[in-house]
Design a binder for these strands. Structure first.
Length: 193
DNA sequence: TGCCCGATTAACT
DNA sequence: GTTAATCGGGCAA
């Protein structure tokens, strides 16, 4: 039986949650698939939206774990995060890429695109394909329209620097399924030695 | 109050 | 490689 991810799963170190989300199933109104890429953010680190304190936009990040934080990126796209750790820690995991498995026709329709590989390969694309907007900011992740289930088996998880940021760009806080075709960008191969 | 920039994407050259 | 689309926050004035 698939294990439903509830609040205790998210009420842990944001890096542990990020790693354990790789391979988990993420559905929104029954549409979605397997999470293959995420990034961790924490309020103690300058690339996080929560770094400069609470505002109306990022308020959900400061609330309890297990909720969705949705924000507008570059004035155009929506991006979804899962709030982690304890209330007030203002940490979250950004969902960056999903391997489509459920509702592929709906995702293609919303994205206006046939190539399955690009349907959910990027944080803005994930939200467009699944139909997530600011209307869903602050919703609980363990109840409809969300449905998250743990991965069944261990899988190889790659790490690397986060994408598209300038602050704290050296932190290896990006996590992904090693070798997946559905990443927004491949992970650099481990250094040869 | 105004100005710049960003956890992005797609459509250019 | 470059650029437009377009909005909230931070910071200077």
């Amino acid at each position: 039986m698939p294990r439903l991810l509830r609040r205790p799963f998210f009420a842990r170190d944001v890096h542990a949650v990020a790693r354990d989300l790789i391979g988990a199933t993420f559905l929104f109104r029954g549409v979605g698939g397997r999470i293959v890429e995420v990034e961790a953010y924490h309020h103690t680190e300058p690339a996080a939206h929560s770094y400069n304190g609470q505002t109306p936009r990022n308020a959900v990040m400061f609330g309890p774990p297990g909720y969705a934080y949705v924000y507008r990126s570059y004035g155009i796209h929506w991006c979804v995060n899962f709030v982690c750790e304890e209330e007030g820690s203002a940490s979250a995991v950004l969902i960056r890429a999903v391997e489509p498995t459920e509702g592929i026709a709906a995702m293609r329709r919303r994205r206006g695109l046939k190539d399955e590989r690009l349907l959910c390969a990027g944080p803005g694309r994930v939200c467009q394909a699944l139909g997530i907007t600011d209307a869903h900011n602050g919703l609980a992740l363990d109840a409809p329209p969300f449905a998250l289930t743990a991965r069944a088996e261990d899988i190889p998880v790659a790490t690397g620097p986060r994408i598209g940021i300038t602050q704290a760009a050296d932190l290896p806080w990006r996590y992904g399924l090693t070798g997946s075709r559905f990443l927004s960008k491949p992970f650099r191969a481990p250094a040869a030695r």
